[in-house]
Amino acid sequence: MSAYLTFNNISVSRGHTLLFEGLSLTLSSGDVLWIQGTNGVGKTTLLYLSTGLARPDTGALTWYKDNMPVEASEVVSFQGHQDALKPQLTAFEDLSFWADLCEYSGDLEPVFHQIGLQSRKDVLTGKLSAGQKRRLSLARLLISQKPVWIMDEPSAVMDTAGRDLIDHLIHEHVSHGGCAIIASHSPARKLGVSPRLLTLNAESPSP
């Protein structure tokens, strides 16, 4: 089991409010970390830390690839609550841009098939429904070919089939040696493996 990401004694505060302190954990291949907590408790902040975009006040995060410390961008891909799609581009054009950006050389057709949007790939993303946009941003995780998936409320606007699709994709990803960090206020679901739970509380932050 190789580690992808370690949190070492992380503390973060927002303004004068301490969000969490003394957080240490290790994510290895096959892990699913399910972060629970009420709104505003710091779930998204924790995800931003994991992507390397934000920095903790104290402590350090280290990302690993083949047991060597690397830049976060080498191992991490992110699905935020924003879909990061351009309404003027078609679904295919939009995904092609991200494929070019993360040097994905494969064919995009199977990816569209996988996310169930093969009939909508020539539609402008501005015309897609909220759930379809979410599926398209899921495709970005697939083509990124990064082992650590970081997902913010992935099933928020999804129908039942969409939720099953997410669960299936995460299960596939994890069973192929990846790992996932999921922030959600819905109760953790079993995704092939039992997720490790991290519950953030407003009063007493605990790992």
Binding site: L53, A72, V76, S77, F78, Q82, A84, L101
Partner: peptide
């Protein structure tokens, strides 16, 4: 503005820091 508000800027930064 547009790239920041729709999350594209954050995504690009995460892919290529």
């Amino acid at each position: 503005t547009q790239d920041y508000e729709d999350g594209t800027l954050a995504q690009i930064l995460i892919f290529q820091q």
